[in-house]
């Protein structure tokens, strides 16, 4: 049995939005201490890795490790039915073939007096559409709760079932790496740079020197360059630009994929870029204290 409740269900909505254009199918791997997703895009150029720690959920139970294979587009369609303020509970049986998703609105709790409810449950003289009748229709189980002083009646609860699938996931082992360059910057600013650079070309060079981080693109229209300098003392944490550099690094990447990564911008105010010569870049969006979504992108190499 797996069951996890996220008060801020919006995180789950945004996570699926952030990966569904990149990967079609993936496994949600559930364990004692986290739920995680690792999947590559079809052309094996990029990889997305999600981790949400169990401590970030307000209820988390996972009796044994489970892999829940899902279609990202379909899950995205269902999650669109959840409001941004809804809490989302995920539930799956150990040997089930579906994932149940329960959406609860922020003001769903209503307290009803047991006696009043008991009359309603017996089908008494409640006029149609009255509060009592509504309770009765929504959850008949309350009739079994005799002897309990109060009832919590849930008016606004939606339950969806997503069909699961068996997915042969091709997992990659990603070694712990000390990167030569770590850049932390506002996620919105990174998104704007990627969007603007795409107008000019399809390959972005990211070059980190003492001067700062230079994003450059060359195309038929012309060239574009944006220089970001360290700004570690900005008033707000999220406006800070912090650059740690052991040695200068310059790499080039396909803008098309970087653009997919920026779909995660809403998940947090900050993005962290990790680079070393001749290895994939890591574009990480921390998700509060809950976890992260990381994207890996293989560089383009000069022939």
């Amino acid at each position: 049995m797996f069951e996890a409740r996220l008060t801020s269900g919006k995180i789950l909505k945004q996570l699926i939005e952030a990966l569904k254009d990149l990967v079609q199918e993936a496994n949600i791997d559930c364990s004692d201490d986290e739920i995680s997703i690792q999947a590559m895009d079809n052309s094996h150029v990029s990889l997305v890795a999600v981790s949400l720690r169990s401590g970030g959920f307000d209820h988390f139970r996972c009796d044994r490790p489970l892999s829940l294979g899902f279609n990202a587009t379909n899950m995205g369609k269902i999650l669109k039915c959840a409001g941004n303020e809804d809490a989302i509970t995920l539930k799956a049986e150990d040997d089930g073939d579906s994932l149940s998703m329960v959406f609860e609105g922020p003001n769903q709790d209503r307290i009803a007096d047991f006696g009043e409810f008991a009359r309603g449950a017996r089908g008494s003289d409640s006029p149609p559409g009255s509060r009592r009748e509504k309770c009765w229709k929504i959850d008949f189980n309350f009739a079994t709760m005799r002897g309990v002083g109060v009832l919590v009646v849930i008016f606004d609860r939606k339950i969806y079932e997503l069909k699961l699938m068996d997915i042969d996931s091709e997992q990659l082992g990603i070694p712990d790496t000390d990167y030569k360059v770590t850049i932390q910057m506002p996620s919105g600013e990174f998104q704007r740079i990627i969007r603007d650079m795409q107008v000019l070309g399809d390959t972005l060079s990211i070059s980190c020197t003492k001067e700062g981080v230079k994003f450059g693109v060359q195309g038929d229209l012309g060239t574009g360059n944006v220089l970001i300098r360290q700004n570690a003392h900005a008033e707000k944490d999220e406006d800070r630009v912090m650059i740690e550099m052991e040695e200068p690094v310059e790499l080039t990447f396909a803008l098309r994929y970087l653009n997919f990564f920026t779909k995660a911008t809403n998940l947090g105010p900050t993005v962290i870029l990790n680079m070393s010569p001749d290895v994939p870049i890591v574009v990480e969006y921390p998700i509060g204290e809950t976890g992260h979504i990381k994207y890996y992108l293989a560089p383009k190499i000069d022939e």
Binding site: L47, L172, G173, A254, P280, A298, K300, I301, E303
Partner: peptide, 14 residues
Amino acid sequence: TSTQTRLESYFMRY
């Protein structure tokens, strides 16, 4: 000209 590399060139599959 530059060539797009694949992730398997850097990470082991398991």
